[in-house]
Simulated scan of single mutants.
Amino acid sequence: MDFSYPPEAEQFRKELRAWLSAHLTDVVIDSNDRRGADDGAFATLREWNATIADAGWAAVSWPREYGGRGATPLEQLVYAEETTRARVPNPLNIIGINNIAPAIMQYGTDAQKEHLLTRMLRADDIWCQGMSEPEAGSDLAALRTRAVRDGDHFVVNGQKIWTSLGHRADWCQLYVRTDPEAPKHKGISCLIVDMTLPGIEARPLVTLNGSADFAEVFFDDVRVPADALLGPLNQGWQVATTTLSFERAAAARLYAEMQVRMAALVTDIAATRGANGSALDDPATLRRLGELDVRIAFLEVLCLRSISAGMSGGDGFATASLAKSVWGDIGKDMAALAFDTLDPGAAAGRWDEFRLTSHALTIAGGTTQINKNITAQRVLGLPRR
């Protein structure tokens, strides 16, 4: 596992740092914490997305023809480290950029690529992904939302839930069942759906921290043009698992984020003084901090192993799934330590917010249960039950 950076990657780092120094503002950074509850913050981030996209820094792993930089894996690693440590907000269309766009690049028509990708990159259009359903959860193959062909349209009926930005979205990459008689992995199709079509209702879901980042979306006899099909009919599972993976160093964000949070936590604990002095004088607190520091170092090794495997043609996905599970557990334990150590409202309430949202780390981007199954089968070689 060799991550010595060649001169080209270090030059890439230098250019990125210089651009961020000139353009990234505290207003943009602070807006990230309020994006789900403040329309003004959301608008600020939308403007930032356009700014960073126009400069070619929004999706460096994308091919240049679509607005990216065709970055090498090591340049992607540099990008993930630098943007995370600078607290650059994730794109509003992060699911679109990382998951939907590669599918459009592979399966989309020329017209779809030309019209949709640039607008997605700039956040001119907001995208959501219609996967999870009330009775399906993380099991995409168990979806029930139906699409029936009627002339030159599909008629869609069903419900999606926990749809990120579903109530703000202009477009949805929607997975539907088009052949109920086929094996459940075979009868799924993917549609690109205009969210303004009649019969679509999106209701925001407010979470514990007061944010509305998710929605439940209902489809009632929605007529979707047949040319909105993305990929072959009944091959939606193949579209969903598309791994063009331009973003080959995304795992770096996991350890870099926790390193940033850890540094902030140590600073805030050091500033907290009680009757017995600094909280850092407490052996129990020091032990918990030390354990977290070691676990973050272990997480970094896991992430770099995943990236290294991907660069050498190996199976980086399995190690990345393990790293994601470790990341979620570290986040929850760090939030608990902050809650136990700091006064309520410390650091302008940053840790109160993280305490509420930290449990979502084991759900977002793949639940811990699903990732443990992947680890068992693809890392440990255990049989399926």
Rank of each mutant, 00 (worst) to 15 (best):
A71V: 09
A71K: 00
A71W: 03
A71C: 11
A71N: 01
T72H: 09
T72Q: 07
T72E: 14
T72A: 15
T72Y: 10
T72S: 15
T72K: 09
P73N: 12
P73V: 13
P73A: 14
L74P: 01
L74W: 03
L74G: 02
L74Q: 10
L74A: 12
L74I: 15
E75W: 04
E75A: 08
E75P: 03
E75C: 11
E75Y: 05
Q76M: 13
Q76S: 10
Q76R: 12
Q76G: 14
L77C: 11
L77E: 06
L77N: 03
V78G: 00
V78D: 00
V78C: 04
V78H: 00
V78F: 03
V78T: 08
V78M: 06
Y79F: 15
Y79E: 08
Y79G: 04
Y79C: 06
Y79Q: 05
Y79A: 06
Y79I: 10
Y79P: 03
Y79W: 15
A80T: 10
A80C: 15
A80G: 11
E81T: 14
E81P: 04
E82Y: 09
E82P: 03
E82F: 06
E82C: 07
E82G: 06
E82I: 13
E82R: 05
T83P: 02
T83N: 05
T83H: 03
T83F: 03
T83L: 08
T84A: 15
T84R: 06
T84Q: 11
T84I: 09
R85A: 11
R85Q: 14
A86V: 05
A86I: 05
A86E: 10
A86M: 14
A86Y: 07
A86C: 11
R87E: 13
R87P: 01
R87T: 12
R87C: 14
V88Q: 07
V88T: 10
V88R: 00
V88H: 01
V88E: 09
V88L: 12
V88I: 09
V88Y: 03
V88M: 11
P89M: 07
P89N: 12
P89Q: 04
N90T: 12
N90E: 12
N90H: 12
N90S: 13
N90I: 11
P91I: 04
P91G: 05
P91K: 00
P91N: 07
P91S: 11
L92R: 02
L92M: 13
L92F: 07
L92Y: 02
L92Q: 06
L92D: 03
N93K: 03
N93F: 03
N93L: 06
N93S: 07
N93H: 05
N93G: 04
I94P: 00
I94Y: 06
I94D: 04
I95F: 09
I95G: 02
G96R: 01
G96I: 08
G96S: 09
I97G: 00
I97E: 01
I97R: 01
N98T: 14
N98S: 14
N98A: 15
N98K: 12
N98L: 15
N98W: 13
N99P: 01
N99G: 07
N99Q: 11
N99H: 09
I100K: 00
I100V: 14
I100R: 00
I100W: 00
I100F: 04
A101H: 02
A101C: 13
A101T: 14
A101N: 04
A101V: 15
A101S: 12
A101L: 12
P102T: 09
P102F: 08
P102R: 05
P102S: 08
P102Y: 06
A103T: 08
A103P: 02
A103H: 02
A103G: 05
